[in-house]
């Protein structure tokens, strides 16, 4: 087994410290009793209490959650279809344009996408609100889903599917019983990615939301624009806790399912 050299160990330690220190500090200071965020005034959970009594925040959180669940689900459906088209459909008219439209939103600055979508909604006379935010979120997150699923489809052994077809499966059956279980982990992580992207989006939501559809990031942004806000520290801590638990659980589950599949394959070959 290779040992890690001092140089590599140092760069890893410093790198991870850089990635995590700001968040750790934020979490610690969310339990600060004082209003001044940089001066420690004893342990307290009062900002959490204040947060849960803030009706405007709770309403924004509810809207954000609703948008994220709906948009990530539709985006996963459309994104998986797009991935199948990218990897499987072969040549068709406008393929380059299609792949361009999948990759461009991944790096497109949010201000451009947001402005463009808003102008579309106004041109077709759609009132801005929760519905327009959902449409906007589906559009950019489906591209992330399709890239994640496409990379899984790429490494997938087509002969398994051909075997199912040879054994008398209809194409739809083969897709359901062979392809889908294999790409399922990628579809699930695509959904999670779309969900977090939607929870997180400030710029595109700001352009496409109406007065009664303020989302959590819009609320957070207006609260912290001028300075540090202890209630936002508490809210951030809650969000960091939820995300870390989710990601760690998901990665443990996927590790277990990979190990199980490897064992099953071994057993299948042995018998």
């Amino acid at each position: 087994m290779r040992r890690l050299s001092w140089f590599n160990l140092t760069s890893l330690t410093l790198g991870l410290a850089f990635l995590y220190l700001p968040m750790v500090i934020l979490v610690i200071y969310s339990f600060n009793g004082g209003k001044l965020v940089t001066v420690w005034a004893g342990f307290s959970t009062k900002w959490y209490g204040a947060l849960f009594h803030d009706k405007a925040f709770l309403k924004a959180a509810w809207i954000t959650l609703k948008v994220a669940v709906i948009s990530s689900t539709v985006a996963t459906l459309l994104g998986t279809m797009a991935a199948l088209v990218l990897v499987r459909a072969g040549r068709f008219f406008g393929r380059t344009l299609f792949s361009g439209m999948i990759y461009a939103p991944l790096v497109m600055p949010d201000v451009i996408t947001g402005l463009a979508l808003l102008l579309l909604f106004i041109a077709i006379g759609l009132d801005r609100g929760v519905f327009t935010i959902i449409l906007a979120h589906i559009t950019f997150s489906m591209c992330f889903v399709s890239v994640v699923v496409a990379s899984r489809l790429q490494s997938f052994d087509r002969s398994l599917e051909e075997a199912a077809l040879d054994l008398g499966c209809t194409p739809l059956d083969a897709f359901r019983s062979v392809t889908l279980p294999i790409i399922a982990p990628a579809v699930i992580s695509g959904w999670l990615l779309a969900f977090t992207l939607s929870l997180d989006d400030l710029v595109i939501s700001s352009f496409t939301s109406g007065p009664s559809s303020t989302t959590l990031p819009i609320k957070i942004f207006s609260a912290v624009r001028l300075g540090v806000n202890p209630e936002i520290n508490a809210l951030s801590t809650i969000m960091i806790a939820i995300v870390s638990t989710g990601v760690i659980t998901a990665s443990l589950l996927s590790k277990r399912s990979i190990a199980r599949r490897a064992r099953e394959e071994q057993e299948a070959f042995a018998s």
């Binding site: 500090i25 934020l26 999670l192 957070i220 960091i240």
Partner: peptide, 30 residues
């Protein structure tokens, strides 16, 4: 890094990416 460290390191690098962009920017203010 040794093979058995890699999944953990990978997760440690990806985890901040899942955490809110807005919050990570904001954390530098303090």
């Amino acid at each position: 890094a040794p093979d058995h460290w890699r999944p953990t390191l990978m997760m440690l690098v990806i985890l901040p990416f899942w955490t809110s962009f807005l919050i990570r920017v904001y954390s530098w203010k303090a």
